[in-house]
Structures are given as C-alpha cells and as structure tokens.
Design a protein around this nucleic acid. Structure first.
Length: 404
RNA sequence: GGAGGGGUGGCCGAGCGGUCAAUGGCAGCAGACUGUAAAUCUGCCGGGUUUUCCCUACGUUGGUUCAAAUCCAACCCCCUCCA
C-alpha cells in the first residue's frame, strides 16, 4: 500500500519502495531526522510462543533495513508486557503465562534475531533488552501519578483494541486495558535510556505506538515517531505465519530447513514479486531481473534467499540442492528420514515419516494412488520398504528410509 | 431473579428415537490437468482392523428404552428478551 511519498532518507525510501509502510506519524520530520543522522528505533516482540514465525518476519526485516541504513535497532523482548497481554486484534484474553514459560520462550526466540541483525556495542549495533527489567519494578501509585495522568480514559475508549471488545460486549479486563499504557511506557523508557525515537510494528499496533509517542512528547517534550506495516497476506487471503499444517516457525528445531525452503518455493505466483521485496535483500533492480525470467526460477531464488537469511546460506543451499535432486527424480540429503532395523510395510513407512497420522490414513493414501516407493506408485499396501528406499506421499512430500 | 433459544466431527452448519461415524459447505490430503503455482474436475477426509467387525464420539452426569446426537432429570457454559 504505502503512503506514496518520496523520502530523502535512505531508510524510509527503502521501506517505502519495498512495501513496508502502512502508516507513519509526521513523515516529513522523521524523514529529516533519519536523513540527518543516526536514529534509534525499536520493535517489541511478545514472548507468548516458543519461537517467532514468518508473520513476524516483516517486523524483523524492518529492523534489518534500519541497521543497514546505518541506524540502531533495538529488539525489545516483551518479558513484561507478555504478563499483561495485548488485547489488540483479539476477541478474548490470552491465558496468562508464568515467569518460567516466558523466560523459556524468550531464550528460544532471541536466537532467531542473530541472523537478521548484528548485535554488539558499536554505534549502530543492535541491542536486545527485556522490558520486564523496568516494568516489574514499577510502583503503582508513583506510576499512576507520573504516567497515568497523561492518559485520557475518554480517548483510550476510542482505540480499536478497546472499542471492538466493548462493542461486541466481549470482556476486557483492567489488566488488558492497561496494556497500551505499559507499552507506551516502554517507548518512554527506551527514549530515556537509548534516545530511541521510533517505534515500528504491525498495523494493529498503531494505537499503542501513537500512545507511546504522545507520552514522550508530554513527559519529555521530545518528538518521537511511529511507523506501521500493512498486514501481509497471501494471494489466497491467508495470513502469513500460519498454514493449515501449523505455524511456520523461524526456529530450526521447530521447522526443518527443507520445509522452510519448500514453503517459500511454493509461493503463489501472484505473491512472488511482493515477497522478494519484503523478505529478501535483493535490490529492486535484481528483483526486476528475476521477475523478468521464469517464474519457477524466481520462486527458487525467493526460497533460497529467504532461507539463507533465516537459516544461513549453507542450510539454504542444502535445501535447494535437495529440492533439485528430489524433484528431478532422485533424492536429496535434507529429506525427512525414518530409521528402521528391517524392512517395514509401506503403511508403517508413511506413518513413520509423518506423512500419515494413522495407518488408516496411510491406507487411504495408498488406495488413492498417492503413495510411491522410489518413484513407482504403490497399489498394494503390503509392499515392504527397506533402508535406502525413497518413500513419497503425493508429489511434494518425500522421505528416506534409512538403517538404524 | 423471570421467560425463551442454543451447546454436533479442525471450522461453519443440518439432523431431532433405529436405516447416524452423523446431509451440506469450508479447510485439509490424494488423483487428473500443469509449472513443486493458481483455477477446474474426481476421490478421500474419527481410530483400529486386510474390513459388511470392533472402539471412541454429538456440553457434563445420570435415567427411560430392545435401541438415544435425538426423550427425561440435574448440572455447566453461551445467546436473546423482560425485571
């Protein structure tokens, strides 16, 4: 969508040209600040799950572009805000997580960032902080007097996150109602600690972000800005992040490299150009070149570039090589494997590889003509497969039987 | 507090004493066509069992029946209207 403006600062110009910008506050002043010198910006991430997923990728890429343009990114782990729970875009309150669960999720999540931004002590090196560090020590009455007085209930009631709940007569607890205040306070705290002047996030965060920028202006008398991305959906209307098979995790231990690569490889034709801009480092000129060629080659390029960013070049190349070999009729190393001591039936092999949830489902797969051993369709469910065999379910799912 | 309506398979939504593992739609999986895409058409779509067999399922717990998702009772939860 974008705002159609032209920007003087490389950072905003890049975001705009690549489709990252949905809304931003005082574009002219932010552009001037970013053009003039280094700025510090942040994005917060909740720790409600064990890993971030590709729905978070747009935000992560913005931090990457921020750093690439010579600015300083701050990754805020929402150890504290996760305890409150963001009502934005939700009909119901999320179950509250305990400290141990949040800490575990946070530890798992932080590893994903190391591939996208460079952490360190240099001026534009990324910083990671946990907002629990300052939120958990807040004293109630002093907080109300310093921060709470700047928030108008009248206005808070008009924010979408609150209004939608009230309009639908869904419950909204006082705890959740405070989320925006707590997030606004984060921005203030980051402004004080790091001179952070920009908060970015998804479009559902607009209210929270503006709240923070307002708070900084009122308390510190300084200007701060907010920027949101559009909600990225696939051509079929589905949201990024999830497929019917489950969340598309960034962490390798939750989703194998090959599966991650395959996911991008199977991108809808209509999404390829857009995704190349959002999820790879290729320049716009390179993308034009790629798109001018074969669409399937473009998808391979998207898959390899996106996988390299998230999982490393080596993993991306291995996945690409495996795909080339496997879909060329052979088999690649990165395929799922099932270790057996002696030959098993095709049914057990399909279940063992995770291609069928039950023997009944495996049976149906065979009956429907979808099962293959070494490329040959299996018609008899009694067929045995031993180590070295390649088992396929449909055209896209392939696995290897190996010896224990 | 009073009066109604409802809770069904991943989701939506029929069924309202046996013929119900439960119509239909969506999602999903597979086949055909293709390009590891989309669209379209076809099949499958609780679990086990080499299959006119067994198990588990229609909010929960009991009951009536030869037989219940379907009837009764109590309880839990949701919605609407009245106070």
């Amino acid at each position: 969508m974008g705002c159609g403006m032209t920007f003087a600062s490389p950072f905003l110009a890049t975001l705009e040209s690549r489709g990252f910008i949905h809304q931003l506050t005082d574009a002219g002043a932010l552009d001037a600040a970013a053009a003039e010198g280094m700025i510090t910006g942040y994005i917060g991430f909740d720790c409600t799950g064990p890993s971030l997923h590709i729905g978070h990728l747009v935000s992560i890429m913005m931090l990457r572009h921020l750093q690439a343009a010579g600015h300083r990114p701050i990754v805020v782990m929402g150890g504290g805000t996760t305890k409150v729970g963001d009502p934005s875009g939700k009909d119901d309150a999320r179950p509250l997580l305990d400290d141990a669960a949040i800490a575990a999720n946070m530890a798992s999540i932080r590893t994903a960032f190391e591939r996208f931004v460079v952490f360190g002590d240099g001026p534009s090196d990324a910083v990671m902080v946990n907002n629990d560090d300052w939120l958990s020590t807040i004293s109630y009455v002093p907080f109300l007097r310093e921060i709470g007085r700047h928030f108008s209930i009248n206005r808070m009631l008009t924010f979408d996150s609150v209004r939608l709940r009230l309009d639908r007569e869904q419950p909204l607890s006082f705890l959740e109602f405070n989320y925006m205040i707590v997030q606004a306070y984060d921005f203030l705290e980051l402004n004080r600690r790091f001179g952070c002047v920009l908060q970015m996030g998804g479009s559902d965060q607009w209210g929270n972000i503006v709240g923070g920028a307002d708070l900084i202006r009122r308390v510190e008398g300084r200007q701060a800005w907010g920027l949101t991305t559009p909600l990225i959906t696939r051509a079929d209307g589905s949201k990024m992040g999830k497929t019917a098979a489950g969340a598309v995790w960034l962490n390798r231990d939750l989703l194998p490299d090959f599966d991650y690569w395959q996911l991008w490889r199977n991108t809808d034709d209509r999404d390829v150009a857009r995704f190349l801009k959002l999820f790879t480092d290729l320049s716009l000129a390179e993308i034009d070149g790629v798109m001018a060629g074969d669409i399937n080659a473009a998808k391979v390029r998207l898959a390899t570039e996106a996988t390299a960013l998230c999982r490393g070049q080596e993993a991306a190349d291995a996945a690409a090589a495996t795909a080339a070999a496997t879909f060329g009729g052979g088999a690649g190393e990165a395929l799922p494997k099932f270790a057996v001591a002696e030959p098993v039936t095709i049914l057990d092999a399909l279940v063992g590889l995770g291609f069928a949830a039950s023997k009944g489902e495996a049976r149906r797969l065979v009956a429907g003509g979808g099962a293959r051993v070494d490329g040959e369709a299996v018609v008899d469910e009694g067929v045995m497969v031993g180590p070295g065999g390649k088992v396929s379910a449909g055209k896209k799912r392939h696995g290897l039987i190996i010896a224990v």
